[in-house]
Design a protein around this nucleic acid. Sequence first.
DNA 1: CTGAAAGCGCTTACAG
DNA 2: CTGAAAGCGCTTACAG
Lengths: 356, 356
Amino acid sequence: MTKIDDVARLAGVSTATVSRALRGLPTVSAATRRRVLAAAEQLQYAVSPNASRLAGGRTATVAVVVPWITRWFFGTVVEAVEDTLHESGYDLLLYNLGGRERLRKRVLRPSSLNKRVDGVMLVATHLRPAELSALAALDLPGVTISSGSEVPGWPCVRIDDMAAARTATRHLLDLGHRRIAHLSGDPDELAFTTHRNRRRGYQEALREAGIVPSPSLDLETQFTIDGGSRATAELLARGEPPTAIFAACDEMAMGAMRALRDAGLRVPQDVSVIGIDDHDLSGVLGLSTVSQPAAEQGRLAARILLDPLRGRALPAPVRRAVPGQLGRRPADPASEPVILPTRLVVRDSTAPPRPD
Amino acid sequence: MTKIDDVARLAGVSTATVSRALRGLPTVSAATRRRVLAAAEQLQYAVSPNASRLAGGRTATVAVVVPWITRWFFGTVVEAVEDTLHESGYDLLLYNLGGRERLRKRVLRPSSLNKRVDGVMLVATHLRPAELSALAALDLPGVTISSGSEVPGWPCVRIDDMAAARTATRHLLDLGHRRIAHLSGDPDELAFTTHRNRRRGYQEALREAGIVPSPSLDLETQFTIDGGSRATAELLARGEPPTAIFAACDEMAMGAMRALRDAGLRVPQDVSVIGIDDHDLSGVLGLSTVSQPAAEQGRLAARILLDPLRGRALPAPVRRAVPGQLGRRPADPASEPVILPTRLVVRDSTAPPRPD
DNA sequence: CTGAAAGCGCTTACAG
DNA sequence: CTGAAAGCGCTTACAG
């Protein structure tokens, strides 16, 4: 395969100049740059990423850690992140935990990330104290998405989970419901803070309406269709079913709809159902929900992560020359999470309770 | 960060020996290996992938090209592939085309893949002749998933699309349907051979039942929920609706269900609907379908791809020593595609037509 | 079984 | 603006 020496020879310059010209560094004359580009084009030259990264000391790779990839939220986030990273010439190294403890250890062992990536994105991945300090020791830039996966010093992009849950619950209250069940996440799963915040939003909305939250209407299960389905089946088995169900995510809400249907109950005539997400298929199912901007969270987090990386790539003098620009940023960009808005989407799965 | 020299010093051996011991090469004494492993553990040493790859001449990375990542089939395939690759120490470099022509050019420009990956997996990505020859020139091992993305000399894992379509159509015929519409894929999208084969299966099944396929019941649209929805709306607008719809994939079938409901038609009482896939949510929707093993196709394709890669990593003498083992494989593993089975799953979206 | 030395293909000070 | 040379951190023949 053609290498940088070949291009240098054909262009009649040194390899150092080829390197500079190809990377668009300003310290190359226009004429030289043209010759180098032409030579590279003619030889179909492409830089060897490994050599470049080894010599340059940057990997041009970002690790993205997700608990799952096939669930709607995470798939959508990864798609948006990948898009943004590729645009900037960064590779995406995907770590899909998938509930695998072994992989988790590998990923979060500091030395495995070190030398391998320039930055880390944690999506709804809660770190234990030991993992947290190990990661901090790496001194890598990072960003998190979703509550519960915060890392001190790292920016965080998320929605306001409590507010989203309150919006969903209030919608049911406004329709006249009083017996409202909640399907929450498994406390061992994902960044459980997300579940907890959504539950708190649910409980607060109830209390504001003068209703005491009932433990018997509050179930913990997996953040999946099957989880929602199982929990709903259990709820129905307890007798005296609720008139409405607020599920902590749309996939659980879909499971609830299935379980209700299997039990011969109609949605929304017998039981109303609402979730959070605005999953692709929620429209098909007529599921009312509180939508969250998954792709936008991914894009934004990727940009926030790339920003300091670009800085690192620049020659130090250039950065030092414009200290004023740095000052325009907030003193500590990680201090405040970036909260993206959510929105109530009313479809066919919510209606007033039957008068009886 | 600790490097190989540090480990060598601590263990009292050369870097070459450290390298060999850590990679598990057989030419290291047990005692030495123990000492090296202990030293590496103590120093929390992790090899620098870039240095290792540059020196070793292998990237330990596989390129996976998918047209989308958020659609069920592709997400499921990627999850399974990533799992298999990680187990073998390979990284997954994800190329999500997402309809982006620019990215497509970058990925399929040979020099960009070269030096960057050891192997290529194409998922439902149809190559044009120029791309095909460019890729062949790289002489990289590869594998494809899905029909329509075949590359000469590369193994292919897929289902029998015609057979799956016939199964779905026959199910409708067996129920007594005669006016059966088909929602097919956009000919410009994905590996269009998939759509074409499914359409042929549909047409053949009709003909075997003595029905002449009607162009007015055969629509082309996108392989998405919205595509299925739009096509169905158009179908209904033409008047004299079919009594059943066979959609080329479950997501289109879901869109069809939505459009039917929006038009005031009930599924299956007024119109039956069936798809292909067995999407996660098909159970929730009660959608009848012909299931295909997406994860298994991904796992199998990954294994097939890794097999020759492992061979390349081995020292040549070891391979030569056991020529008999090579002979046990089919002479040309790429000559015959690996066909995985599909299965009819009857749920609530298909029923006999109304007697009228 | 082990080591010394060359080399993988780039980038980066340094000097001019 | 450009080049000569060192170096990034490994692996691989080669020799013993």
